[in-house]
Amino acid sequence: MNSEWQTFLQQQQATLEANQVINFGDVEQERQAVGAGTVIADLSHLGLIAASGGDAETFLQGQLTNDIQQVTPQQSQLTAYCNPKGRMLASMRLFRREDRYLLSLPQTVLEPSLKRLRMFVLRSDVSLDDASDELARFGLAGSDAEKLLGAQLPSLPGTVDEVVHHADLTVIRIPGPQARFEIHGSASALSTLWQALLPGATPVGYAAWSWLDTVAGVPTVVPETVETFVPQMANLHSLGGISFTKGCYTGQEVVARMHYLGKLKRRMYRAHTDIDVPPPPGEAIYNADTGTESSAGKVVLALPAPQGGVDLLAVLQISSVEAGPLHLGQPDGPELNLLDLPYEVTNEA
């Protein structure tokens, strides 16, 4: 975490652990605010990989699932990094700032992703660096987010994935039922903006912010789920995170085969369960009729819900969903109640 930004967060009464904000002192208030109000959250749990050099675009085009040529200073995208078998090593948001590409992904998978990417640079004119401490970043979301941010900046991104730049600030609109923004910049610029937004926004920890990803149906790959899901299993095709026309990249053969020749047998669902402690990513989910011999799927992301209980994203066998009730952890575990996603997903890959 940027040291100047860390000092600012501590002055705001943030509780920090492992370079991420756990809360700002009132967990219950934060949980209620993220469900019904406007919230502001440090995003230091997300790291940044910077790619620069004359061959940066060509290099990334051969590594990631989306069409890098569509990324401009005004347009970001969701994308994924896969192994040769088409299983995701990381999911990320890619955007441009100045003369560099920046890959935003969980800090917990940044180092292995960076190490692996560097293996394929060879003689290309590409530099790959951990830029997490160079910039600070926070998120703003909720019913008044657009109004609050618009009062401080001359213009805002109007559609999901759009980017605007103002002096030292980069503002990205990201998916969500209500307006949701990521803001990247220097610690001093972000500190000033944070304080200007505070009267109308409740500061929350990273878990409250991550709950908004479950509402938006946006998957996150963490160490427990690395090399577990093909991108389509996590609905990345429905989120515009895969290009099927860009040509070759690592894992492309498997991803393309599923798209052109296959039919999805697994996809990501959103669900709620009445428990107090969220299950870890990778936790098995069962259909009561199939027993423990084979699971119906796995948890992708699970967070405390504002209304109580836990909301989660899970990759599940479509046939198991159609067969009947699903249970967490074991065949007679807590039952899952499926919720709507904010986008359409077809079973056709």
Rank of each mutant, 00 (worst) to 15 (best):
V163A: 07
V164H: 03
V164D: 05
H165G: 11
H165T: 06
H165Q: 15
H166L: 02
H166Y: 14
L169R: 06
L169Y: 02
T170N: 05
T170I: 12
V171D: 00
R173H: 12
R173A: 12
I174Q: 10
P175V: 08
P175T: 12
P175S: 13
P175C: 10
G176Q: 08
G176R: 04
P177Q: 13
Q178W: 09
Q178V: 15
Q178G: 08
A179V: 05
A179F: 14
A179E: 09
A179I: 04
R180L: 03
F181T: 02
H184S: 13
H184M: 12
S186M: 09
S188A: 12
S188F: 06
S188N: 07
S188L: 13
A189C: 11
L190R: 09
S191D: 10
S191W: 01
T192N: 15
L193C: 03
W194N: 03
Q195V: 03
A196D: 14
P199V: 02
G200F: 04
A201P: 15
A201Y: 01
T202G: 01
T202S: 05
P203Y: 04
G205D: 01
G205E: 02
G205W: 03
Y206V: 12
Y206S: 14
A208P: 01
W209R: 12
W209K: 04
S210I: 03
S210F: 05
L212E: 02
L212G: 09
D213L: 07
D213M: 04
D213Y: 06
T214Y: 09
T214E: 10
T214L: 13
V215C: 01
A216H: 08
G217W: 03
G217M: 09
V218Y: 14
P219C: 10
P219G: 11
P219T: 15
T220K: 08
V221W: 04
V222I: 07
V222E: 14
P223R: 01
P223L: 00
E224W: 02
E224M: 00
T225A: 05
V226P: 00
T228W: 10
T228Q: 11
V230G: 03
Q232R: 14
M233A: 13
A234C: 05
A234F: 03
L236K: 08
L236D: 05
S238C: 12
S238K: 05
L239F: 01
L239T: 00
G240A: 08
G240V: 02
G240T: 01
T245H: 14
T245E: 12
T245I: 05
K246Y: 10
G247Q: 11
G247Y: 15
Y249T: 01
G251A: 03
G251P: 14
G251H: 10
Q252V: 04
